[in-house]
Design a protein around this nucleic acid. Structure first.
Lengths: 217, 217
DNA sequence: GGTATTCTATACTGACCGGTCAACTATAAT
DNA sequence: ATTATAGTTGACCGGTCAGTATAGAATACC
């Protein structure tokens, strides 16, 4: 019973847009309400706190990521090309946002992580689990690629983490240089990282096993 | 003439520590002053605004990076091992901060970039130029490695950007997973990225030149 | 020793913050 | 039609924000 309203969704949408563009601490509840066309009192009818709205925003963007991963899982593509496709779709997102707003914002997850990891362990862990889903997707493709004999993957999980980190780093660099094409232009690197070998001696420093490149001048 | 004071340096140091740990928007001038043991009036004697102090903090951390790059430029090391050494030194920094504070903070530059790229174009460009210095270092090593015949580098600048992005991404992931070892454990990937080929057709999508991996199921 | 200058000290401003509150309206179920 | 419920409204709260005002204290230079 009682009346209906889409104010909750409007708040999430407004907060999503503002958070993408400006981060979390830089925006206020008032800003979100104004953009959503909702009064401040109503805000606290739907969300106990600003932070709870942020959690909802992260959920919403996680849904977006789920869609991207689904689109990248095209059965017509070879596994390694699905990874490449992930990079291209993400790059497309960056370029689209740039067209609309004139700014390359990078990865909303990554930005929130950089801003809030130290401030709020709950948010950090939530973002970690979203990243985990991304890594798992990549790992799955790597395993499939290995099964097909497309390449040897010594440690799929390790390589998947490397590839996902690379994707995040590319977006950060793209945002800092305000050049959204960067993700697309450097997507190839993901395949190079797929060939990452097993970590034999994790504690050893630069003086690893002797190789050609190890000889000094 | 007039009296001497190291309050300015104490403010920078305090702001550095707080910014590393919490970012920019999350900390207040009051917090900085308390940690530095400086009164608020003195703060505005040395810095016209909080933002100006941030610029000084970035300069200070840039100095730290300069030192790291210098240490990584060990002439005893082969060029590619210098890149590896950069990753190890950065990883060491992360692990040291983790020991001291219990948190992996990631890259201070990267965190500021993620938080402020959209908010303040001057800060963004300053950070972009710092990143540019990092990329230039890597590019230099790649060129030298190519000269020595350690590997073929089709496009050193492109590969250097990829490697630097990877370093940033690793730190972001390490911070989110609160696992400082990540940078060290995945440092090998940097060398894989060094082998990044030239970008033949930047506009083409996933359907690039036919290769073994391109055949669908 | 006088004095210009640098630095310190603290009270203060007005704006803004996240969040509260109580009165109110609309509606769905009975 | 009554009533419980869901949603709305805007004023309001204490606290904090970046930044200011205005003193006075310390000191290097003449």
């Amino acid at each position: 019973m009682g009346r209906h309203s889409d104010a909750r969704n409007r708040l999430i949408q407004a907060a999503k847009e503002l958070t993408y563009a400006q981060g979390y601490n830089a925006i206020g509840v008032k800003d979100i309400c104004e953009r959503a066309g909702v009064n401040k009192g109503s805000f606290y009818h739907f969300f106990p706190s600003k932070r709870d709205l942020l959690l909802a925003v992260i959920d919403a963007h996680t849904e977006w990521l789920r869609g991207v991963l689904e689109r990248a899982s095209d059965p017509e593509l070879a596994p390694l090309d699905r990874i490449r496709q992930l990079f291209l779709l993400v790059g497309q997102f960056d370029e689209q946002v740039q067209d609309e707003s004139g700014l390359t914002i990078g990865c909303p997850f990554g930005n929130l992580a950089a801003e809030l990891n130290a401030q709020d362990p709950v948010i950090r862990e939530k973002l970690a689990s979203v990243f985990g889903a991304g890594v798992a997707f990549v790992e799955g493709q790597l395993r499939e690629a290995a099964e097909r004999g497309d390449l040897e993957v010594a440690d799929p999980r390790r390589a998947a983490q490397a590839i996902f980190a690379y994707l995040e780093g590319l977006q950060l660099l793209a945002s800092t240089q305000n050049s959204p094409q960067l993700v697309r232009l450097l997507a190839d690197g993901a395949i190079r990282l797929a060939e990452l070998g097993e970590d034999i001696d994790p504690v050893a420093g630069a003086s690893g096993p002797p190789e050609a490149r190890n000889r000094p001048h």
